[in-house]
Amino acid sequence: MTDEHTETGTGWPQPAGPVRPDGPAGEPDPRPEAPDPDELSPLSPQGRPPQDDAPAKGGDESAAGSFAAAVAAGWRRFGSATVMISVLLVLLGFTLAVQLKTTSTDSSLAAARQEDLVRILYDLEARDVRLRQDISTLEESQRQLRSGEQGRQAALQEATRRADELGILAGTLPARGPGLAVRFQAGAKPISAIRVLDAVQELRGAGAEAMQISGGDRASVRIVASTYFLDGENGSLIVDGRPLSGPFTITVIGDPATMRTGLNIPGGVVASVAQDGGNVIVEDREVAEVSALHVPRTLEHARPVG
């Protein structure tokens, strides 16, 4: 094998000499000659043919007998060298195609130069930093908004609470809670407005938070700061312009014990009414309901300050 290789392979002109003589009489031409014309034809069509003819004729004369050997040699020569070259070239073509395809498919970054890659990386880092800043800014504003929301809710709660308190104090909201029911039963003399006013003042002094007064016909009037009491006819009472007939009941929300003590002090409301022949019945109430409402005056002149 190797021998033949070296012989045939040492150069182009030489194989033409030795090989031709060996084998090809006329028929073996296809084997050794088939590759030859193909390989030779491109190089020099004008110069080559005469050379080819000369050795071929020489071969005819010299090796007419050793026909099989020539065929075998041609096969082997053809086989080993050409097959090897073919395999290598197939490999080359394969790799070439693969490489071309690879390069063309991901030419975006893989084919980029180092400076470009560095620049791209730098851009990405700058963008990263910018986006991080954006994130922190947005988180900060989110936190602010959330705390603002919380503050607003707290303020709203506080305002609602104050509005409720003020509404109860101003008599615009119904209220309930522990308290007393104070009933005035007239004796010989009707219950005068002064006694009722005394009782109201006493209750206020004892910490009453909400009061209403109701007459015998279940009409109720909320007692607020501006409520006034007047003596009416036939023992009736005019409260805030509304006539109430006896017996009167003041429903009050506050600390029951304190208010009871306040009413019962010597020379106080109970004693005064008793002097007039009347009677004051004080009852504790677990839940005293002050449901009558006072219609607030619309303010014409007073304006809040600030």
Binding site: E39, I85, S86, V87, L89, L92, G93, A97, V98, K101
Partner: peptide, 22 residues
């Protein structure tokens, strides 16, 4: 001629199989 054919065969094979380069 065989060389050219082998080269073309390799190219076709490469395009056809489309392997990924490790």
């Amino acid at each position: 001629m065989i060389a050219v054919l082998a080269l073309l065969a390799g190219v076709v094979l490469g395009l056809w199989l489309d392997p990924t380069v490790p």
